[in-house]
Amino acid sequence: MIEHSDSSTAPPVVVAVGPDDCRAAVRYGAEQALRAGCPLHLVHAVPVVPQGPETVLITAEGVEKFGRESLALAAEQAEDVVHGLVPVVEVLHKGAPVPVLVRAAKQARLVVLEHRHLSRLARLVNRTIAGGVAAHTRVPVVAVPTAWRPPGGDPVVVVGVDVPERSAAVLAAASSEARVRGASLRVVHAWSLPDPYDGLRISPEEAQRWTDRSRAEICSALDALGDVEVAIEADVRVRRATTVEALLEESADADLLVVGRHDPLLPVGSHIGPVARAVLREATCPVMLAAPEVRR
């Protein structure tokens, strides 16, 4: 491991630096570190290269040299954002990306990764890393699309709510993100009938009753946060649709989409959940997998 010393004891923002350009994730992580006044840790994982005749085209020294160069480039990009106001720490670890980032997350406030639109395979690989990290840690994990830029205009944070009375953690995370950005908060809930009946027509009056009930439950959950301003100003949108469809459409103009994920109860990790996995695969804005509720 190569690490520059840092005297700050504040939990850092950790950004995963891969072999390709990660400027979108680096910029996002640097902005988060500035807002929090905490260090920014740039973490790169290099594979363990077995020594022998079959590895003549690549050596451990060559791999580590490339890793250092990737970190140096990311550090330059980060300094362009933070301008020395927070420490930028370069960390080189040997090992697979997910275990390396999970270890780094133990002392972090946030983990940021970048996912790419080069090909479907590339998207799958990068988002699998984000999901793998989120499945093993309780800190928030953010996946930032390559070349993503804020859409302009008034900033918006979108949060998906499934079961309102069990959404305190994801609502608190989203309201906090909206506050530090000076953004509006858009709360999205989708409802549908059980699978065997979802194609059936129901009366407009019945659909409105479902919508009104869901809206009341969400407003009650917002009130339970104890933040009157958030509860009053939140834009609550309830619609009949699949959850993934509603979240993707409502976040098309967002600066951040916040969704919940399953609690990683098992020592070997847990699935992040089908909605979180689908949103990571398809969303066009940064996606935060919020820290889950701790279940007993």
Rank of each mutant, 00 (worst) to 15 (best):
G131A: 13
G132L: 00
V133P: 14
V133I: 06
V133N: 04
A135D: 11
A135C: 05
A135T: 10
A135G: 15
H136P: 13
H136K: 14
H136V: 09
T137A: 07
T137L: 03
T137P: 14
T137F: 06
R138Q: 10
V139C: 04
V139S: 05
V139G: 02
V142E: 14
V142S: 06
A143Q: 12
A143C: 05
V144M: 12
V144C: 11
V144A: 13
P145Q: 00
T146Q: 15
A147G: 05
A147P: 00
W148L: 08
R149L: 14
P151K: 01
P151D: 08
P151L: 03
G153K: 03
D154W: 15
D154F: 15
P155I: 07
P155D: 07
V156R: 14
V156L: 13
V157K: 00
V157W: 06
V157Y: 11
V159R: 08
V159A: 07
V159S: 03
V159M: 07
V161C: 01
V161E: 02
V161Y: 09
D162R: 09
D162T: 11
D162P: 06
D162G: 13
V163S: 09
P164C: 04
P164D: 01
P164S: 02
E165A: 07
E165S: 12
R166M: 09
R166L: 12
S167G: 10
S167V: 13
S167F: 15
S167N: 14
A168G: 14
A169C: 04
V170M: 02
V170N: 01
A172G: 14
A173W: 10
A173G: 09
A173R: 14
A174W: 11
S175N: 01
S175A: 04
S175D: 05
S176P: 14
S176L: 13
E177F: 10
E177N: 04
